[in-house]
Design a protein around this nucleic acid. Structure first.
Lengths: 345, 345
DNA sequence: TTGTATGCGTTATCAG
DNA sequence: CTGATAACGCATACAA
């Protein structure tokens, strides 16, 4: 193991230039009054040597860290590969990095000690936190949201929590309308767990559309699955299909995963998509276009969601109040209908 | 914004207990000699108050950070969703977190300053780094690997770099053997960019198998694509197929993405899979089993790769040399053939 | 066995 | 406009 050459400190610079550390610090932070000549001299020297202030020392002193904590508890056990949250996280990361912030994952332990989220954030002096996925009933999350540390989410709704998320009502509405347009009247729905905010909202939107169009809600034409994943959707779809008294003309699946599991189950039952039943998905995951048939679906604007959340968080963090508007509590990002081949007149 | 109650410091504890800070510190770090009675008393108090040492202060003093840096430059622009690297990252994270380490992404900037990877790591006092994806020609990576900071990779081969990765030779060999077993003789190969280590090795293994079985290498039956992604594979496959003088009986695609793009191109050419040509993929991504036809493929053991890399890194970090063996430079993790429906006698 | 003093690299306050 | 000094919170020699 090579010995690492010790980094330059602010003292080294000061000594080399015949100045005091505090002068250097002031120049580096555009604070206080410093002569133009010395300022330029120091800046040149700093550039030449590539000096960068030690981060941990700065944090220790400055009480903030240019760091954003991320709560990402792996609820559906997709991990980073999660087609929605993985992308949102990536887009968020890209966006805040150019603003000079970096991401750290918040965990409930620090070395060997168990901490609450809030304690962890405080200990690390994170400037803000992004709550991506997590258990709404976890008191640790509630504590965090109400702790005064700026928080945003990209999925969760909670009192005092700023968030950006898809306009789910719009998504289901344009799905429904599309199906109506192509002549379907009996529209069923296949949902994920309604303990999830997104599925609950989509379910509600579906039911409201039914009443709006004077269509009765048929018990056996709505199902919400427990659990996640295509395999799971498939097996639940099998029994769901068996429970129908009559075939619907179309089904809105509340995610592409659900749509794929459902379509596979339909195939097994010799029901053709879209000839016998039109199916529409939600998300437009990467494989939606590769599925057989290619999925008609609702595309969520993951980048826009991430950037809206990031903007809200950043303005909360730098909350001067004068230039920046207070971000609205919940921002709804429009979605888009992608018509492919799983729906047809 | 609520005012945050200031955290307990080691001084507070010392004062409250009528002891000195250093005694507390010693007890917390199991170092030095402390009376059993005071030890217990302090430990109880610490537990009761939930005191946790400030991380940044510790790092500043201790020169290490219980933190592992991750180089994850988004080469194929898949981001976290990358079916291979996303999973490896997740598994690595899970594994090191229980050992008390956390992950940070290494970037080339700190606030506003541009840094090399090495400078960044030094500044942050990371204990080790995982190089997941990155440009091998980037001098910043080479500098990092040779800097003395413990490094491992899960894909890259470089002098002085410990790594864990799939046994690609084995993967191509069992693919080839499987195709032979089901009676295919003319076996073509469809590769990704050979600038990537994995594709280069798979290509080499393929060519070696050809000579081993006394089969000539046919120029037009091998192609390596530029770029990544199913769409890209599809369009390159279209022109590749057009270039054939004769149809092969089977094709080994060096990733599932490639296989899917290829099969779609085959379909367009009215070539049926597997009836006319058997196709085998590589990776066993989530969608492989849902594709039409479900893909026969090579499953990489991403968890084993991540854990082998993590073990190597951890033992490098805690390199006492006495208990722990020096980890071997390159560990090859076995792969597994998953037979589905894209290959058939 | 316990306590004191000092440094880790910054930044902020206050003099000069 | 610039410089000394005191924190920030912890850990470690060394003294007691």
């Amino acid at each position: 193991m090579k010995t690492q050459k010790p980094r330059l400190t602010i003292y080294d610079i000061a000594r080399d230039m015949g100045l005091s550390p505090s002068t250097i610090s002031k120049i580096l932070h555009h604070t206080g009054k410093v002569g133009d000549a010395t300022r330029k001299r120091v800046l040149d020297y700093v550039k030449a040597t590539g000096y960068v202030a030690n981060f941990n020392a700065r944090i220790l002193k400055a009480k903030h860290s240019w760091t954003i904590g991320v709560v990402f508890s792996d609820i559906a056990s997709f991990g980073f590969e999660h087609p929605f949250f993985g992308s949102v996280l990536q887009a968020f990361k890209n966006y805040v990095e150019v603003k000079g912030y970096e991401l750290v994952f918040i965990v409930k332990k620090l070395g060997q000690s168990e901490l609450t989220y809030y304690e962890w954030c405080q200990n690390k002096s994170v400037d803000g936190v992004l709550i991506l996925t997590g258990d709404l009933n976890d008191p640790s999350i509630i504590e965090l949201v109400n702790s005064g540390i700026p928080c945003v989410s990209a999925d969760i709704i909670m009192p005092n929590l700023y968030s950006a998320m898809s306009d789910d009502k719009m998504g289901i509405t344009i799905s429904f309308t599309h199906l109506l347009d192509i002549g379907c009247r009996d529209i069923a729905a296949f949902s994920g767990p309604t303990s999830s905010r997104a599925y609950a909202e989509r379910t509600l939107a579906y039911r409201n559309l039914l009443v709006k169009h004077n269509t009765p809600f048929i018990e056996s034409w709505y199902h919400d699955c427990d659990g996640y994943g295509v395999q799971n959707a498939y097996s639940q779809a099998i029994t769901w299909i068996a429970s129908w008294k009559q075939k619907p003309q179309a089904i809105i699946a509340f995610s592409d995963d659900l749509a794929m599991g459902l379509i596979n189950a339909l195939k097994v039952n010799k029901i053709r998509v879209p000839e016998d039943i039109s199916v529409i998905g939600y998300d437009d995951i990467a494989f939606a276009s590769l599925f057989n048939p290619p999925l008609t679906t609702i595309r969520q604007n993951k980048v826009a969601i991430a950037e809206a959340a990031a903007d809200a968080l950043l303005s909360l963090i730098n909350g001067n109040g004068d230039i920046l508007e207070k971000p609205t509590i919940i921002q709804r990002i429009p979605v888009q209908l992608i018509i492919r081949e799983s729906t047809k007149k």
